[in-house]
Design a binder for these strands. Structure first.
Length: 562
RNA sequence: UGGGGGAUCGUCUAGCGGUAGGACGCCAGAUUCUGGAUCUGGCUGCCCAGGUUCGAUCCCUGGUCCCCCAGCCA
């Protein structure tokens, strides 16, 4: 056991599992599952569930299945299945040979339904959807029994069989559980078990025209797979009596324990499939992998590591209260990871030319730079220095405010890994007032590494050689939404109004170290003093494109704000 | 005004009758050739009102507020 292990106290789910283990409720087994519906891409909310389910299986020496919960042919497709598997693998989880599909259980599920009919626990209803809704009652009034509720077992068997035999159009019949139309729990007012859907299922094709509902398929799928603990989100809490009813009435041998926890909400973004889809389809973002999205594909493209995401999910904890996690925690997780692992390079986002007047024209020096001060094994590299360089525009102020430790007329700074320079003049565009270039002098005695430089300067600037640097595009990202908690409701218009107009800023005239031309898409770097960036797949031979994953913490920005 | 859940620092999360702890964040300092990282120190909290108890975040009673449920979605 490493000493760095933080014994995070056990959450209520793990406590329950431990209790079940002690009581031998499922013997010594712990078997979980991650059951996404293949109708959307995975996001960080799913990551929490994934880390929980796979994490628990690993911790208790159990197993975790991947199950595609594909009981609705009108919404699901194979592309999502593939995407889900990719994302899961990228996140670092492995389901070995335990890849399952609810659709593989259709025949068994159908037989269970027949069994319920035979027990008089299910019946075919022929009311319209609208009528069923009316008969259901309201939150405060009990429902009424359907006139078809008294059909005989034989009638129901025949009808259900003919439903399967494609004799009816969509919606003319539905198989319902016979429970209690007066139950205060609306989910128990004879919920639908099977509906007719003449649609091509992406896996079973035309084999079926009746499909089980979630409430019927899910508990039985869990049971069929021998799942001991079926973890789901809070909104299913009042489905649990139904979950248990199905397993009891179907007389299964493995009665899985459903446990509910609060879903993950992240500030300044949205997590619902519906809203994510809306953002993509209406073109507010460029696709499912847009770096502004909380999708796994978006985070990956943004530069997030699986490690950071897993860490984040652990820190977030598991509980039953609704919560909204601050983006700062996610950012902390990725900074923590990248600080250890990302190679440092110098890149200038808003270039300002600096001419070092006393540096010989045409002279080029090779300076030594550390690749990663957090990891000496990453070694060193050579960077070129010459008479003309670029620094960041914001690193010069004609009239410096207090505590501005950068360049201003007459002031000195160190150029990282190079010399101390002093600003002796600057050129301004007479029209715009924009500073066009700086004139500086350097002190040859202050070369980096030469310790005799007794002089201390308050600031160190990053820079690139004007002659050697290569151009790049840099994409800066900020929060997608202006509001920290957009809430769970909200329609199209509301979401649009919350969009942050500055969520993406494209910088096209950036200058970066020439070695970056050898980087491969997805590789991550720290641009010194600025943040963590990763090379975007949009990059081409002659145009590098970087995404800013997250800026470095910036205490100067805080000071200046005052 | 039916049923099911939930309320602890700004944000998350521990606590299970005995000094309210951790993380993120924030503030201050040290250090630093990244205003980064690191290291110190500090900050703010038990929804309310009664009750039981020597002692209550915890147990009881009564409130208040928030979330979920009336799909043939999951």
């Amino acid at each position: 056991m490493s000493s760095s292990d933080q014994h995070s106290s056990i959450d209520f789910i793990r406590a329950k599992i431990i209790a079940d283990l002690e009581s031998q409720k499922f013997g010594k087994r712990v078997h979980t599952r991650f059951p996404p519906e293949p109708n959307g891409h995975l996001h960080i909310g799913h990551a929490k569930s994934i880390c929980l389910n796979f994490g628990i299986a690993r911790e208790f020496g159990g197993l975790c299945n991947l199950r595609l919960d594909d009981t609705n042919p009108t919404k699901e497709n194979m592309e999502y299945v593939t995407s889900i598997q990719e994302d899961l693998q990228w996140l670092g989880f492995d389901w070995d040979d335990r890849l399952f599909y609810a659709s593989d259980y259709f025949e068994q599920l159908y037989q269970y339904a027949v069994m319920l009919i035979q027990k008089g626990k299910a019946y075919v209803d022929s009311l319209t959807a609208e009528e069923i809704r009316l008969y259901r009652g309201t939150l405060t009034e009990p429902g009424r029994e359907s006139p078809h509720r008294k059909r005989t077992i034989e009638e129901n068997l025949a009808l259900f069989s003919r439903m399967r035999a494609r004799e009816y159009e969509n919606g003319v019949h539905v198989l319902r559980a016979k429970i209690d139309m007066a139950s205060p729990n609306i989910n128990l007012r004879d919920p639908a078990l099977y509906r007719i859907r003449h649609a091509t299922h992406y896996r079973t094709g035309e084999a079926w025209c009746v499909y089980p509902t979630y409430d019927f398929a899910h508990p039985l799928s869990d049971s069929l797979e021998g799942i001991t603990h079926s973890l789901c989100t809070l909104e299913f809490e009042d489905h649990r009596p139904l979950y248990d009813w199905v397993l009891r009435e179907c007389e299964v041998s493995c009665h899985s324990q459903q446990i509910e926890f609060a879903r993950l909400n992240l500030g300044h973004t949205v997590m619902s499939k519906r809203k994510l889809l809306q953002l993509v389809e209406e073109g507010h973002v460029k696709g499912w992998d847009d770096p502004r999205l909380p999708t796994l594909k978006g985070l990956r493209r943004r530069g997030y590591t699986p490690e950071a995401i897993r860490n984040f999910c652990e820190r977030v904890g598991v509980a039953k209260r609704d919560s909204v996690i601050e983006m700062a925690l996610l950012e902390h997780a990725i900074r923590e990871d990248l600080n250890r692992s990302a190679s440092r390079v110098m890149a200038v986002l808003h270039p300002l030319k600096v001419i070092i007047e006393n540096y010989p024209v045409g002279q080029i020096e090779e300076l030594e730079a550390v690749n990663n001060p957090e990891d000496p094994s990453e070694g060193k590299r050579r960077i070129s220095f010459c008479r003309e360089i670029y620094i960041e525009q914001e690193d010069f102020r004609e009239d410096p405010p207090k505590k501005f430790f950068r360049l201003s007329p007459g002031q000195e700074v160190r150029l990282r890994y190079a010399y101390i320079i002093r600003c002796v003049g600057f050129e301004k565009d007479p029209q715009t007032g924009e500073v066009m270039a700086l004139r500086c002098t350097f002190d040859p005695d202050t070369k980096s590494g030469k310790t005799q430089s007794s002089r201390k300067v308050k600031g160190t600037l990053h820079w690139v050689s004007a002659q050697h640097a290569i151009p790049a595009e840099v994409r800066l990202y900020e929060a997608l939404l202006t509001q920290s908690n957009p809430g769970s409701g909200g329609e199209l218009q509301d979401l649009q109004m919350l969009l942050n107009p500055h969520s993406l800023t494209v910088l096209s005239g950036c200058k970066v170290e020439p070695d970056l031309s050898k980087a491969t898409p997805g590789s991550r770097f720290q641009f010194e003093r600025q943040g963590y960036f990763c090379l975007d797949p949009d990059s081409t031979q002659d145009k590098l494109v970087f995404n800013r994953t997250v800026p470095l913490r910036d205490s100067w920005a805080k000071i200046e704000k005052e």
